[in-house]
Design a protein around this nucleic acid. Structure first.
Lengths: 222, 222
DNA sequence: GGGAACATACCGACCGGTCGGTACGGCGTC
DNA sequence: GACGCCGTACCGACCGGTCGGTATGTTCCC
């Protein structure tokens, strides 16, 4: 067999990654408990033997999937081009714009793996809970410097900290995913991001928001 | 055995309600799929025969539990005394104060049943999803008149509707529950409610918020 | 006495996990 | 450079237990 030829699928050595990708897809759609090991194996195109060769238990796969999710999504946001803005507020709004773009596709495609998993596992699996916590709050930490710089540049009301704002951003997104799953409509995500954007702008650029204004920026429906 | 004496628990005739209460407790702690019918029966102190006498399937119990949750929590908010405020903004802030008070207890005691269930069931069970949607958005509808009156009295930026604000309030709460489960700390709920309160105040009473002020209202930690 | 409200025993499917075995690639040896 | 060797990756049949659901009583109340 050739060493680096193109068309050969080279299946061997990829079972772990295929299982992690399958886990991200299936768990987001069905939840952790409803996703069986056999489901994951058939979705990944591997056998049960391969599964338990790479992961000691199903719980261990869930932990690894959370880390995998953290790495892949972290890479996505780290490479985004909204970081180019000079004003930290523009970077924050650019982040929210990116979150809007990322709502393309079906519900199970744009919602968050760890937000789904932690609701099921927070009380039953300390390892999964900790992995989800690390992912969510790690992402908040990633966003924190932008808020810190925005506060030092534009000021902020008493009690408003960069960390708290970064976490609140994740709160709004996770909550929006819950309501999107309940309604089957992505519009609620876009609406809540819009409210969050308005809150941030009011905090750091209060002149831009005019109460009872007639500015034609209504993109949300209803 | 006496017919209607006081200390007798009068167990007969209450299996359905006991099962619904058990479902609220167990599903919030373990999730829907991880909660078995046997778990529910032993928690409720009834047998499997009673379970399937009252509910055709486990899914039917989940739907009924969502409705039961809707009724009991709806009663709680309908009877709350924040409705006495004359200014609709005060009623909204009073609602948020009540949500803060309701975070007493453990995580599984203050989090939301339907927010937990819908994450697992939105794709697999249309009936459960619809029941959760009705509960969440029904509660938003309950809150909507306050925002409508606040807008008509105080004005609002373009694109800000009463329904969207009521839904956004539920978004923040549901998201806060997700992060509270991930961190095991209720503080994130209080912090996000504080941000939401600040957003609402900025919308309807902008003079109250002073950027870079030194007002000593810092109740959140960190 | 008849029907609603339970209780008890049980079933078949399924699920997480095990285990003996196989395919493959690299590496030292002569 | 062919060969033997070994460790890793992977296979798939199988097992013990669990789960949702059923069938068949039994009890209570009108």
């Amino acid at each position: 067999m050739t060493t680096a030829s193109a068309p050969a699928p080279a299946r061997r050595g990829r079972a772990r990654l295929r299982l992690l990708d399958a886990a991200v897809d299936l768990i987001r759609a069905r939840g952790l408990h409803a996703t069986t090991v056999d489901d994951l194996c058939s979705e990944a195109g591997v056998t049960k033997g391969a599964f338990f060769h790479h992961f000691e238990t199903k719980e261990a796969l869930a932990v690894a999937a959370a880390q995998h999710w953290h790495e892949t999504t972290g890479e996505l946001f780290a490479n985004a081009d909204y970081h180019a803005h000079a004003d930290p507020l523009d970077r924050i709004l650019g982040y929210l714009d990116l979150r809007v773009v990322l709502t393309e596709g079906t519900t199970e495609e744009y919602t968050c793996l760890v937000g789904t998993m932690v609701q099921e596992a927070y009380a039953s699996s300390p390892a999964v809970r900790a992995a989800c916590e690390a992912t969510i709050f790690g992402h908040a930490t990633f966003l924190e410097p932008e808020f810190r710089e925005a506060i030092s540049r534009h000021g902020a009301p008493a009690g408003v900290t960069a960390r708290s704002l970064a976490i609140h951003t994740q709160t709004v997104l996770q909550g929006a995913f819950v309501l999107a799953k309940a309604s089957g409509d992505v519009a609620v995500v876009l609406d809540s991001i819009e409210h969050l954007r308005r809150y941030v702008e009011q905090l750091f650029r209060p002149a831009a928001i005019t109460t009872t204004a007639t500015t034609t920026t209504a993109t949300t429906k209803e």
